[in-house]
Design a protein around this nucleic acid. Sequence first.
DNA 1: TGTTTGTTCTATAACTTCTATAACAGAGCA
DNA 2: TGCTCTGTTATAGAAGTTATAGAACAAACA
Lengths: 133, 133
Amino acid sequence: MILSVDLTSEVPIYQQIRDRVVEAIAARALVEGSPLPSTRQLAADFGINFHTVNKGYDLLRQQGLLRLNRKSGAVVQRDPDSGPPEAGFAEEWQGRLTTLLAEAVAHGVDDAVVLGMCQLVLSSFGGGEGESA
Amino acid sequence: MILSVDLTSEVPIYQQIRDRVVEAIAARALVEGSPLPSTRQLAADFGINFHTVNKGYDLLRQQGLLRLNRKSGAVVQRDPDSGPPEAGFAEEWQGRLTTLLAEAVAHGVDDAVVLGMCQLVLSSFGGGEGESA
DNA sequence: TGTTTGTTCTATAACTTCTATAACAGAGCA
DNA sequence: TGCTCTGTTATAGAAGTTATAGAACAAACA
């Protein structure tokens, strides 16, 4: 599995780790049971402190996307087809969606273009596999 | 104009101010030339420091959405129909869109549902006015 | 035994967020 | 002129966040 972080970005490293894993799960590159590198291993790969990786993994665990234990390391717990999200998620998420879409519209991007980009992103997740079944 | 902020939120106040203004512009509640309260006035209304408002307004100015001067105060500079966004905006924005949509998909929300929510949000912006022309 | 794993604790430097006080210049009004 | 309002800038401090660092522990495994 290939994760990458940008150490020069303004986005905190632990959040980049969380975001990349979330995107990989959405794209089915990671599914239920997929192993992730150990916190120390990933930290060594990135040249960062293992506490930083730990924080990113911990966020994923709080969101129910990762299971951590000494036996099997870090493995993906929930994949896109494993059930409904936890209560309150939709409401909070829709608030963020509203702000993000408003930003594009306020900058003059046409509604149809915005919607087309949403479709494009969604198809990029499921586009590679699992559609012909 | 009615802005509101949640002082107990984890989202920084200055960013909430920015977000609410962006959403108001997207929804045409604010258009080119619409006046905003002065930094000190809005700070007094919210019971916060005027530097915090200043920071929110400054973000909006950097994004080309607000014009500030001593003569006319703070007025909206760009409305949804005033032209294309600045260079590099689309790319950066699409990255954030990817992460946000991935979050929903990873939590088990169906692609069609996600797209429906995007449509719902977009229609909530333009739904009240300017469609019958 | 030795290694690896997740987990927890303390500590620190740098940065962010918010508040606070102060001062300045441009504009408008009595 | 004097007063008030505006944006703008500067400095400072408290509180929280981010990332690093070192240390230690228990569980799993060869």
